[in-house]
């Protein structure tokens, strides 16, 4: 059990989301950086889909009313436990009464606080993710507030070395599988979507230019600013299902990338769709930062997915073995 001592306005309980209900208009929601949430859970011996807290406004401060293990992953938020700094991507134990503080990260956008056992809220339609738009899931369908108490489910037994331990963050460990930013811009791979070719010469400008993530961006979607692009003809679109990562172009010509809280249906022309394996990186992109889209293939997307899966499996196996070995030596 933890108590929220201080929080910004948009921090919520999230798990890996609520897919499977788009056919009744329900957004999947879920962590914007699902990789960070997974690794946090793996470090704690939780199920990979256990719910954690997505922190995107800082400072964020919690008190452990009961002791327990926790993990901090995602953006390096310079966390401290009773004032003692913790490395990023780290798990440690907290004694009853200890205070954990997360400060504004200098890069990346979202930090994840996972708790041993996972956040205990009742699943709604198979998920503990907060759907702010629908007003359900998470903690009463709303953002976390000062004074909230967040309970946890029963934790797995596991040896935790003194001082805790961590992992090499994926941005470092996977730098070969994920294109490194050039001149500070994030490279995001995407596949051309249904109306791509109708943009004519503007399609090339979509891929070649740097887009800036505008201030009107949130968990629902990122609005990009740049040199507008337009289809060569006005088309009458019928509403159809969409998934996070779809890049739609409204009449004004500046694209919108749908994110975790994406609408389930859309009707704007869509120029491309981000490969799923790059969504976690987009989920960490900050307002005001630059990105460029890189055309990709299904084969390249699969290679990126395999790199992610191998990293997760390696963390899982190694963390277990290291715990066993250290427990044996303790």
């Amino acid at each position: 059990m933890i108590e929220i001592v201080a929080t910004g306005p948009l921090n919520t309980v999230q798990d890996l989301g609520r897919p499977g209900y788009r056919n009744i208009g329900v957004t999947a929601s879920g962590a914007m950086d699902p990789l960070a949430l997974r690794i946090g859970n793996v470090l704690l011996g939780n199920a990979p889909g256990a719910a954690g807290i997505e922190v995107q406004t800082f400072p964020f401060q919690v008190r452990f009313s009961e002791g327990g293990a926790f993990a901090i992953t995602g953006a390096d938020c310079r966390a401290t436990l009773d004032g003692v700094p913790l490395p990023p991507w780290w798990t440690a134990g907290a004694a009853p009464g200890q205070m954990l503080e997360l400060f504004p990260p200098l890069k990346d956008a979202r930090a994840y606080l996972c708790l041993a056992g996972g956040v205990a809220v009742a699943p709604v339609m198979g998920s503990r993710s907060t759907s702010l738009r629908g007003g359900f899931g998470g903690l009463q369908g709303r953002v976390l507030a000062t004074g909230d108490h967040v309970a946890t489910d029963r934790a797995a037994d596991g040896f935790l070395p003194k001082g805790g331990f961590g992992v090499v963050p994926p941005a470092v460990a996977l730098k070969d599988a994920f294109p490194v930013a050039e001149g500070g811009a994030l490279l995001i791979r995407a596949l051309p979507a249904g109306e791509h070719d109708l943009f004519g010469a503007d399609a090339q400008r979509f891929w070649s230019q740097l887009w800036k993530i505008s201030a009107r961006s949130d968990r629902t979607g990122y609005r990009l600013s740049g040199d507008p692009i337009h289809p060569t003809e006005v088309m009458e679109m019928r509403s159809h299902g969409v998934v996070p990562g779809v890049i739609q172009v409204p009449p004004a010509g500046e694209p919108i990338v749908q994110m975790s809280d994406a609408n389930t249906a859309g009707g704007y022309p869509k120029i491309a769709g981000v490969i799923e394996a790059d969504l976690w990186r987009l989920g960490q992109a900050r307002i005001g930062s630059l990105l460029r889209f890189v055309p990709a293939t299904h084969a390249e997307a699969r290679a990126a997915e395999q790199a992610l899966a191998a990293y997760i499996a390696d963390v899982h196996k190694t963390a277990r073995l290291v715990r066993q070995a250290l427990a044996g030596m303790a």
């Binding site: 070395p161 001082g163 331990f165 992992v167 090499v168 460990a173 190694t318 963390a319 290291v322």
Partner: peptide, 8 residues
Amino acid sequence: EVGPVLLP
């Protein structure tokens, strides 16, 4: 550093 794991 032990594989992907970091011990303090």
